[in-house]
Structures are given as structure tokens and as C-alpha cells.
Design a protein around this nucleic acid. Structure first.
Length: 502
RNA sequence: GGCGGCGUAGCUCAGUUGGUUAGAGCACACGGCUCAUAAUCGUGGGGUCGCCGGUUCGAGUCCGGCCGCCGCUACCA
């Protein structure tokens, strides 16, 4: 049995969960579910990032202690994921004691290894932005690009991480691990950044105390990014359960958005090297959901909550749309028209209608008892091809291709029914063979759509009379043609996906 | 400015190392069917493959130039 450790970014609690967060999380969930289906030992991690100045400031405005404040915010993410049928194995909060311990151990290790030193950071600071700007980011005259105000030169005593020492080691590591970051253009982006020269970065702050305390110097807390990245190893027992840690690291799959490439593909692997562990084996970078051409992001007004969408379209259709219409790696347009069109074409017309017509004809020609499939059906070959393609697509991190392939099987089955016309024939072996094969396809489809639409998979499974749950099936064994036993009561239910009129 | 990517049917995109009439899905039109959620099945229309030039027997696929769009070029998460 192989292990599959997949992570989402941990989401900054300052913002409400939106569809952009959901996109990452649903993709990670689908990949996790696929790997469970093929029998891998899966650990799927998500969570919330809760330290930093912005959170502290917001809490203060609410008249609350920071932890009291994030105790209210973090569950909103957990609830959003529950509402999308996300089956994460752990939900980490950076405010948990286990994380504080891990961060302190991880960074103490880096410190012990000689990669941290104390120095003064000097930079141009924008107070409203709460951040430093590099000189070439500024408007002419030295103004903040957002606020158009002059910046203050500030100095702060910080601990620095010797990132500069990892330029060559990172270049060498990426050369030895060409598939570590996908898709390739993103890998090149990370690499060109590294090759452009790395300088040391400050990793602690004294101006705030909402963070993980630096164990060797009480006046400092770690800068929020430095604490956040470490969540990935906290959750698998870093510094607390060495055996468990060794089982899961470094063969992790980090799923991230393209805006945080630098942190995951430069800082994080360097930190790992400095701490004496291997860098993460896989980083898969995805694009953004665009709404009318604009990024759906934390700050913009165009955010949509996952709950609004699932209320309108249903949980599985939202999951399906996110997985099917936005290939991992490129940006995708998210629109009501898009999701509606996909819903009607793929879910209502193809899949839902196939289930309806098959269960109806089984009712009229077989007294509602599903017959066994035809071992020599043309569909057996199609199913074998589709299983191979679907498997290859998930392995390649391409859910949209996996689903596209599965829908080819649905299409071929609809076509097969047109040819055989069992509704015209007298009951008998010929009709049984056709309908049994169609039921077998529905069984296979139920298994193959588990990663994308877990509830739908269960419902199809139940209606064609099978017991247990499709998620408990194991591929490739369950994908072999002929698994539908026949002799089961088939239920003609209400349409699985009622056609939408918009 | 530097580095990188993109521009193929109305829409979203696929197009291996250059090779017969450039593909898919959706949308559209026509035909079949009527078991099914007016669903389904089949057929078809539709593309100067951003522009110009070059290499080649032959280029969407290689080379040069141009136009348009986008990303990265470090301390916001």
C-alpha cells in the first residue's frame, strides 16, 4: 500500500471562505478520494492560518483577544468544507499547541544549524498596507502604489534566515527533481526567481506579539509565513512523533494557487533543507477562478460564498463544475451560465437521464429486477479504455480529463441503447443483456465519480440495488467488467439532476 | 527594461519528434427515435490555425520580425 499525503494551503482567517478557497479544497478532496479508491493510505490536510498583524488588528477592532477572534473565524472554514462534502483527515489551526511546539522545534533546528542570525531590517513601510515595499514597486516619488502616500523608512531588529545560502542547493535539487513543481511553466517561474539571486529574509517581528514566540528570544515572534508553512509537517508529527513523520514525509503533494509559488517553491524547500529534512516532493500549482475576467480573491467584491452556490445548484454539481471546467494549472472563468450549461448537458441530460431511462425500462421489461450484464458487450471494451484513461488522468493531476473520459462511457451507453432499443423488444435474454450492461455501466460510473460527486455516486449505487457504498470499492478490481451481479431490485426514482430552465 | 507564456471553429479548448481533406465538447441546423428529465442517437454547417516574411517537397507545428494579451521580476496572506 502506498501513502498519499495531500495538502491545501491553510487559509488566512481574516477573509470569509469564498469559491476560490473552495476550488483548491474541492480539488484536493477529489484527489484524496481518488487515492482512497485505489487503496492508498491517504492523509488529507487543510486548515487555517491565524497569526499575523492583520488578524491581531481585526481582533482589536472587535474588542476581542486574537484567539477569541480566530476561534470564531476558523470554524467558518470547517463549516464551508463540511457543506461541500470535503472529507479531510485533519484540520489544523496554527494557534494550536501542537503547531507552536512544531514551529519552535523546526526553527530551533534551523537556528542550531547556523542559518539564522540577528540583524536590522530597514525598509520603506506603508502603515495602511502594513507591509514593506521594495524600491521598484513604488510609484514615482516614492509613493505607495495602493495608497499613493509617502512611505516611512523604518528599522526593525529581526532575525534573518540565510536564504541566500540555498540558491545553489535549490537549483541542484530542482535539476535532480524535474517533476517537483507542475505544471512546468510554474516550475520555471520558481527556478528563474531562484536563479535571479536570493537574499536573506527577515523571519521575526517585534512590533506585534500575535504569533509563535521565538524560543531563544522572548521579544520576537515568528513572521506569519514562517509559522504557516510549517503546518504541513506539524500535522504529521514533526518533532513529536518521529516515526509517523518519517512515514509521510517528504512524499507530500502540496496543492497551491499560483500566487503563493514563491513561498512553497523557494522559501519552504529552503527551510526544509536548513532544518535537515528533504524538500516537499510535489507541488501542484493551480490557476485562479475568474469572475468576469477578474480574480476571485480575498479583497475584491466579487467573492461568492460556497454556500450560496450549493444552495442554488447542489453540492455535487458545484464540485463537478469546479473539477470539470477549470483544468488544474490554468485560470478558468466562473459564471452562472457556465455552471448551468454544464449542469444540464453533463448531469441532467447525460448522466441523470441515462439512469432514468435504464431504471424505467428495467421496470417495464424486467419487472424491476436488474439483469446481469453481457460479458461480450461492446461497452466492456469502452469501459476498460475509460478506466485506464481515468486512472491516468487522476495520476497526472487532471480531474477534468478524468471526468471527460468517464462521460465518454456514459455517451457510448446512451448510443448503445439507441441501437438496441430494448423498450421495443419482448422481454427475454436479448433485452436482459442490454439492460444488464447498462446497469453495469452505471455501477462503474458510480465508482468513477466518487471523487467528484460522492453523494451522487451513493445514490446511483443504491438505486441499481447494490448494497454497501461505492467509495468502499477498490480499483482496479472494482472496475472490471461484470461486477454487477443481476437479480437486484432496481428503483426508478425522481430525476437525479432536474433540468434547469435558466 | 529582463525572463517566460499565450493568441486554433460563436464559446471553452486538444493538436506528439513538421506530412494525407486541422480535431473534441458546448451552442446551432437538419434527420431518426419516443424508454428517458422536450432528454437521447446520427448527420451537417462553420476556422485566412494573430499578422508578415523565411527554411522545407511539405508548417498550426521550425526560424526571424511585428501586433495584441498575460505572468514573474522578494518580505500582504
Amino acid at each position: 500500500m502506498s501513502r498519499y499525503f495531500i495538502t491545501t494551503p491553510i487559509y488566512y482567517v481574516k477573509d470569509a471562505p469564498h469559491v476560490g478557497h473552495a476550488y483548491s479544497t474541492v480539488n484536493a478532496d477529489a484527489l484524496a478520494r481518488w487515492h482512497r479508491l485505489v487503496g492508498d493510505d491517504v492523509f488529507f490536510l487543510t486548515g487555517t492560518d491565524e497569526h499575523g498583524q492583520k488578524v491581531a488588528r481585526a481582533a482589536e477592532e472587535q474588542g476581542m483577544a486574537p484567539l477569541e477572534w480566530t476561534d470564531q473565524l476558523s470554524p467558518r472554514f470547517a463549516e464551508a468544507w463540511a457543506g461541500l462534502d470535503i472529507a479531510n483527515d485533519d484540520f489544523i489551526r496554527t494557534t494550536e499547541p501542537r503547531h507552536r511546539v512544531a514551529v519552535q522545534q523546526f526553527l530551533s533546528r534551523i537556528n542550531d544549524n547556523g542559518y539564522i542570525y540577528k540583524d536590522t531590517y530597514r525598509g520603506l513601510y506603508c502603515v495602511p498596507c502594513e507591509r514593506y515595499y521594495a524600491a521598484d514597486e513604488l510609484l514615482p516619488g516614492g509613493f505607495c502604489p495602493d495608497h499613493r502616500i509617502p512611505l516611512e523608512e523604518l528599522e526593525e531588529e529581526n532575525y534573518f534566515f540565510k536564504l541566500s545560502e540555498f540558491q545553489q542547493p535549490l537549483i541542484d535539487w530542482y535539476a535532480a527533481h524535474p517533476g517537483a513543481v507542475v505544471p512546468e511553466p510554474k516550475r520555471n517561474e520558481a527556478l528563474s526567481f531562484i536563479k535571479g539571486g536570493l537574499h536573506d529574509i527577515s523571519i521575526t517581528r517585534t512590533s506585534i506579539d500575535w504569533g509563535v514566540r521565538v524560543p531563544w528570544d522572548d521579544a520576537h515572534v515568528f513572521y506569519v509565513w514562517y509559522d504557516a508553512l510549517i503546518n504541513y509537517v506539524t500535522a504529521i508529527g514533526y518533532g513529536q512523533d518521529q516515526e509517523r513523520f518519517d512515514e509521510w514525509w517528504p512524499s507530500v503533494h502540496h496543492l497551491i494557487g499560483k500566487e503563493i509559488i514563491r513561498f512553497h517553491c523557494v522559501w519552504w524547500p529552503a527551510m526544509c533543507m536548513a532544518a535537515g529534512i528533504d524538500p516537499p516532493a510535489h507541488v501542484q500549482v493551480h490557476g485562479w477562478l475568474l469572475l468576469g475576467g477578474d480574480k476571485m480573491s480575498n479583497s475584491s467584491v466579487n467573492r461568492i460564498s460556497p454556500a450560496e452556490l450549493t444552495e442554488e445548484y447542489g453540492v455535487d454539481p458545484v464540485r463537478y463544475h469546479l473539477l470539470r471546467d477549470v483544468p488544474l494549472g490554468s485560470d478558468g472563468e466562473f459564471s452562472a451560465e457556465g455552471i448551468s450549461a454544464r449542469y444540464n448537458a453533463d448531469l441532467a441530460n447525460n448522466l441523470g437521464n441515462l439512469l432514468s431511462r435504464v431504471t424505467t425500462v428495467v421496470g417495464s421489461k424486467c419487472d424491476g429486477v436488474g439483469p446481469a450484464p453481457d460479458p461480450d458487450s461492446r461497452l466492456a471494451g469502452v469501459a476498460a479504455d475509460v478506466l485506464a484513461e481515468t486512472t491516468a488522468a487522476w495520476d497526472a493531476g487532471a480531474p477534468h480529463l478524468a471526468l471527460e473520459s468517464t462521460w465518454r462511457l456514459i455517451h457510448e451507453t446512451n448510443a448503445e441503447l439507441e441501437t438496441a432499443e430494448p423498450w421495443k423488444a419482448e422481454p427475454g435474454p436479448a433485452v436482459d443483456a442490454v439492460l444488464g450492461s447498462a446497469l453495469e455501466v452505471l455501477r462503474l460510473v458510480a465508482v468513477l465519480v466518487v471523487p467528484a460527486m460522492p453523494s451522487t455516486a451513493r445514490e446511483i449505487w443504491r438505486r441499481i440495488g447494490l448494497s454497501g457504498a461505492p467509495a468502499d470499492q477498490r480499483l482496479p478490481a472494482a472496475g472490471v467488467w461484470g461486477g454487477y451481479p443481476g437479480g437486484l431490485a432496481v428503483e426508478k426514482g425522481a430525476p437525479l439532476f432536474p433540468r434547469r430552465k435558466d
